[in-house]
């Protein structure tokens, strides 16, 4: 009898732990991933319809739909595994950063040649990946040169083709998530893609840390440049005035993911959430929508403070949350080359 009681003590927490993991995954899939990609799919459909209705670059309806769909993308842009990676779909939605200016070059070439590839959705999937997705559309709607280049009729057809292509890609991602990928994360033992809850949690944790890294190093690091050579013109989606907004939206989405993952490690939960709150507070007080302030010392200091605060979230995630999810946190594991 005593033996049985002892056994019960030993087994209960273990079973509870397994249930925790499974429940955590189910929560992330159903409350974080699927709603995010559903929003992206519906906002992208609305974007394509808006482009059909009015393809003028300055159209309020089109710009509104573009910004809504772009918001939806930023909210899932950290979920880079499975359906987003099939056939380079995520790159086709989001070709950025673009250090060689491939997007304006590709768009200019298409407009100047009046490339008939815009006439077919299938054919459009074969154009340079730099001419597809939200960042291409941003140039077509907001860039003074590109939005006035060549013939209006061709630009209209191109805007509609890019919007329809974004819609197709977003629908394909959602379909894959709904059809099989959600189930595969929730019940990894039924497939060969992930073999256990641990592997799934590690994938989700990687999405969190990679997302934080992208926001700190690329979304903020690119415009920051160096003190001697700040690069405000490298700010993400600055033409549409969205640079700071992307940092905020990504932090909000990453905070949501972090909180759901941290249900496994309540100690990490509070410190992580406080760190996110601090970063978001800094974004609220920044008042610099396209990081133009990086060029003057005071404005720069505030963007740097934001970048450092995201660095702290990463440190907490790596030190407190990662190990609870079975992710190594060593000197080389965290920062190899």
């Amino acid at each position: 009898m005593r033996f049985l009681i002892l056994l019960a003590f030993v087994i209960t927490p273990l079973t509870g732990w397994a249930q925790d993991r499974s429940a955590t995954i189910q929560d992330v899939v159903e409350a974080h991933i699927l709603p995010g990609f559903t929003r992206l799919a519906s906002a992208s459909a609305a974007l394509s319809q808006a482009a059909q209705a009015d393809c003028a670059a300055a159209s309020e309806g089109l710009r509104g739909a573009f910004n809504d769909a772009f918001d939806a993308w930023i909210g899932v842009s950290h979920l880079r595994f499975g359906p987003t990676e099939t056939g380079n779909r995520a790159f086709a939605l989001a070709f950025w950063p673009d250090p060689r200016s491939a997007t304006p070059k590709a768009l200019s070439a298409m407009i100047e040649a009046e490339d008939p590839v815009v006439e077919s959705a299938d054919a459009f999937q074969t154009v340079s990946i730099a001419a597809r997705g939200f960042y291409a559309l941003e140039f077509l709607l907001y860039d003074p040169q590109i939005s006035a280049l060549g013939s209006g009729a061709y630009r209209c057809a191109l805007i509609r083709a890019v919007a329809a292509d974004v819609d197709n890609t977003a629908q394909a991602i959602l379909t894959d998530w709904q059809d099989h990928y959600a189930a595969l994360l929730i019940s990894p033992e039924n497939s060969d893609v992930y073999r256990s809850d641990e592997e799934v949690l590690q994938e989700l944790f990687k999405a969190l840390t990679t997302g934080l890294q992208f926001t700190a190093d690329t979304r903020l690091g690119r415009p920051l440049g160096t003190f001697d050579q700040p690069r405000p013109t490298r700010a993400e989606a600055r033409r549409a005035g969205r640079s700071l907004r992307h940092v905020q939206l990504s932090l909000i989405a990453l905070r949501d993911l972090a909180q759901r993952l941290a249900s496994i490690s309540p100690e990490a939960s509070a410190t992580l959430d406080a760190a996110f709150a601090q970063s978001l507070d800094l974004t609220e007080r920044l008042d610099d929508p396209v990081f133009a302030g990086v060029a003057d010392p005071q404005g720069r200091l505030r963007v740097e403070a934001l970048q450092q605060s995201i660095g702290r979230i990463r440190e907490i995630a790596a030190a407190d949350l990662g190990p609870a999810l079975g992710v190594a946190a060593g000197f080389n594991a965290l920062d190899g080359d």
Partner: peptide, 11 residues
């Protein structure tokens, strides 16, 4: 300028 940020993954 952007540390170790990867700038060209799609290509």
């Amino acid at each position: 300028d952007a540390g170790r940020a990867k700038l060209n993954l799609p290509v």
